[in-house]
């Protein structure tokens, strides 16, 4: 339900272009999304309440995701090491190649982009269903009636929480992934510890870490804001909440991949 002036303006502004062509639908989404995100950045009613919300969201969105990120990073690291070894058995390839390949794929893409996609699935769907449920049970209207800005109250802490924690999650994923590659490689006997260490130190460019961390922060913003958008504009009932949460995951994933391309172009070329 269009709850306030900005939403109504958004609807009025974009209603005529609703004529179902895909581009128009996309533009409508982008317009409404932008207005909603702008609305988030208003002055909080009470700093202590927002601080508590921020801590709570950091726990829910960040700390509770560490387990799954660690497990997936470990096994992906191991598989990357073993696969590289198996595909480079020719003696012409140096033995440190395994460590090198593991390091570069984990640092450059896995720990930022793949982890972001995992988070989009875990965090994105939970954000969209939480906010969507609040919308269809009129809890968002209740906030509005109390004189609270629901966008700021609900969405802003989520965005900030994940943006703060994303770099840490990424670093964690890097460490665990490299460890996974080492354990996987040595246990299966495809690489020695010494060669692996030479590999991960060979021609190391520290900028790759910066690049990865910057990406992770951008992706954190995308996941939380896109999912909140889908939750916020849910209308209907439980069925639509489920639909919103699916859309949240799909759209955040697509946007992440798109921005991955853009950021790579900007930062690495």
């Amino acid at each position: 339900m269009p709850a306030d002036k900005a939403d109504c303006n958004a609807n009025r502004l974009f209603a005529p272009v609703l004529q179902t062509t895909l581009v128009m639908r996309l533009l409508e989404h982008i317009g409404k999304y932008t207005l909603l995100i702008l609305r988030c950045f208003s002055r909080p009613e009470s700093l202590s309440v927002y601080y508590r919300r921020l801590i709570r969201e950091m726990e829910v969105l960040g700390f509770n995701s560490i387990g799954i990120v660690a497990i997936i990073s470990f096994f992906m690291g191991a598989v990357i090491a073993i696969q590289t070894a198996l595909n480079t058995e020719n003696p012409l390839f140096p033995p440190y190649l395994v460590g090198l390949a593991a390091r570069d794929s984990i640092f450059l893409e896995f720990s930022s982009t793949m982890v972001a996609l995992i988070l989009a699935g875990k965090v994105g769907s939970s954000i969209a269903s939480e906010i969507g449920t609040m919308r269809v049970t009129e809890q968002i209207d209740a906030l509005e009636i109390m004189g609270v800005n629901p966008a700021t109250y609900l969405i802003l802490p989520k965005i900030i929480a994940l943006m703060i924690l994303a770099p840490f999650i990424t670093v964690l994923s890097m460490v665990v992934g490299i460890t996974g590659g080492w354990i996987g490689g040595t246990v299966s006997g495809v690489v020695s510890t010494a060669d692996y260490i030479i590999g991960i130190r060979y021609a190391f460019i520290p900028y790759y870490i910066t690049y990865s961390l910057v990406k992770s922060v951008v992706f954190a913003f995308i996941i939380t804001s896109v999912s909140s958008y889908h939750g916020y504009y849910t209308r209907g009932g439980a069925l639509e909440v489920g639909r919103s949460s699916t859309l949240a995951v799909v759209h955040s994933s697509v946007v992440i991949l798109l921005f991955n391309l853009i950021l790579t172009q900007l930062m690495l070329t």
Binding site: M134, T137, E138, Q139, D141, A142, E144, I145, M146, G147
Partner: peptide
């Protein structure tokens, strides 16, 4: 609105 109180049809408790 800070002077409003509203009771929704479905209570709308958080």
């Amino acid at each position: 609105r800070q002077r409003f109180g509203m009771l929704f049809q479905g209570a709308a408790l958080f």
